[in-house]
Design a protein around this nucleic acid. Structure first.
Lengths: 340, 340
DNA sequence: GCACACTTTTACATCGATGTAATGAGCCTG
DNA sequence: CAGGCTCATTACATCGATGTAAAAGTGTGC
């Protein structure tokens, strides 16, 4: 292995500037006042040697790495991509770097991350769980600073969420108001044993809205499945069509699912919104550009990312405060897929 | 600031197992043979104390962090998201963690990353540059291990690319074969002064194909712009329409651009592929699910990511070998947007 | 001109893991 | 059973930055 030239260290800078290593450190970190002329000398030496402090050494000393991890189920989905984009921006503004983890391939990984986050030498973790429940016994005193995003049945840790029941209610009410009589659901099913919290809550809101409009939920037009992607949505739509149970609207639990479903509907010669109304969740950028554009539930992503990062940073500062939950407001965005 | 309980260190494990710290280290890293019974004792102690080695300390000692950075222009685009997804997977398989950077907001950041990567304490950097040219004088001996992805006019560093001239040629030839007479270009323009290498190469291929078919390129139907996203593509399509120069096909330089353009065309009452043929580049997942589905240039993303990570890892091992360029094969995928 | 208070800088130890070189244990041979 | 030879294990120093406590320097007031 060939290495580049040896990096300059505080010692080298100190020697060149004619001061002690600690003074260099004081100048660089700025935590201690240094007389202006000394400071100048040091900065000149730093410049000349192109000195950059060694973060490993620094974090070994002070126990912080300045790195947070973001763990998402599937990085390739539009929702994840957008979330990532925001979180990275906010984190950088707060002087933190972001390390990426992907969990969908191995659900076990979520547990590993929470229970063994320390291995990765990160200050904290933002996790969008799909499997994580209260049932995981994580020794409280060993829990790394964690913020969960998305609806979660977990009350030991900080979390950022939207009111999924309410959102599910609003979407369904909207579809019914636009004339739908039989609203199919892609992503949630009555009695699905391994359903995620998100799925359960959206379905609850959906059911409540149906009943408020005098309609009894019909499990025959509810399809639960794990893979909330376009491919998954397409498969679920095929499944729904094959059940031949009749429906005039589809409430998809993510935009990606909706895209997959719309594609299948159109392949089968069904028109959206002519024959079937379709709605999504998340308001990813594509929703606006689809044909027809997709009615969906939007949330303030920037606010969401800020809440997540800020919760995490305060948690890193103080591991003792009780867990908090921040709800980010959502909004139904009505577009072409439910407008005829 | 409240901290959790102190982490166990090699020392603690050593004390519990009744051996020296170095032996614990030997067991954990597995680099030195340890007698089976000793090994057992140590592993038991590791288990009991839930010992996890401190990576900061380890990397301080051996100069490696096991972290590579991936810097992309805009994390929210489908192409970036997919690239990220693959790179993270491959990197994990190789035992590396991935740190994320986003560069579009501040082009200056690309230079910072290349010239000051050391600050971030990463072993290497995979960069998808938009601005980086040969002109940047980076002192060779200070260059961190870098792999550039995408077409780049940079010959001092490793890179992974596709043959963009050839791909541009193939797409144009396809559009012409499908009956197009006036192929508009979104993403490249003759004489654009700040054009990226990608843009220039795709445009060159396009021009060559036109001339091979006896058509002279017309700058009036070439639109160059910086933001290669759906929003950018939509704006470019509006610009193209407003020029009123006549066109019966659009060759977009990314799928996102194509999506934005298709949306605008359809808003203006133009049918794809009826009135206008449309093609993209990248074959992001949405291309398959659009209506109509999008003809585009696919590349083996997995192979692309593997090439990038592997180039980087060998570069980290040996900084002396001359720069290499790996070309990943591409393939024209013909779909609904050019099939009438 | 000197003592005292205060500011700036320094020497040293430390964070945790691991490479190096030396020590000790175990085995074989004569 | 002593001497030599492996092989496993250990003590110690080191990676680079920084907290601590002590030393050096500066300035003020009498």
């Amino acid at each position: 292995m060939t290495r580049g030239p040896r990096r300059a260290t505080v010692k080298d800078v100190a020697a060149l500037a004619g001061v002690s290593p600690k003074t260099v450190s004081n100048v660089v970190t700025g935590t201690v006042f240094v007389r202006p002329d000394t400071r100048e000398k040091v900065l000149a030496a730093v410049e000349e040697l192109r000195f950059v402090p060694n973060l490993s050494a620094r974090s070994l000393r002070n126990g912080r790495t300045g790195v947070i991890a973001l763990a998402l189920p599937d990085l390739a989905t539009a929702f994840s991509a957008d979330m990532l984009h925001r979180v990275v921006q906010v984190a950088h503004e707060r002087g933190m770097a972001v390390l990426i983890e992907e969990t969908a391939a191995e659900p076990q990984r979520e547990y590993d991350l929470v229970s063994r986050a320390r291995e990765h030498q990160i200050d904290g973790l933002i996790l969008n769980p799909i499997r994580l429940k209260d049932s995981i016994v994580v020794h409280d005193d060993q829990l790394p600073p964690v913020v969960l995003i998305g609806e979660v049945e977990q009350h030991k840790v900080d979390r950022v969420l939207i009111d999924s029941r309410q959102a599910g209610y609003e979407v369904t009410a909207h579809l019914l108001e636009r004339g739908a009589k039989r609203v199919a659901v892609l992503g949630g099913e009555t009695g699905a044993t391994d359903a995620t919290a998100t799925s359960i809550q959206r379905l609850e809101g959906h059911h409540r809205a149906l009943r408020d409009h005098g309609i009894e939920p019909d499990p025959a037009i509810e399809v639960y499945f794990q893979e909330w992607s376009m491919v998954g949505g397409a498969a679920a739509a095929e499944e729904l069509l094959s059940r031949d149970a009749g429906f005039d609207a589809i409430m998809a639990f993510t935009d990606s699912i909706a895209f997959g479903a719309m594609h299948v509907l159109q392949e089968h010669g069904l028109s959206v919104p002519g024959d079937v109304l379709v709605s999504g969740f998340d308001d990813v950028e594509h929703a606006r550009f689809m044909n027809p554009s997709l009615t969906t539930v939007a949330l303030d992503r920037r606010a969401f990312a800020e809440a997540a990062v800020d919760l995490l940073m305060t948690r890193i500062e103080d591991r003792a405060t009780p867990p908090r939950a921040v709800a980010v407001p959502h909004e139904l965005v009505i577009r072409g897929s439910t407008t005829r």
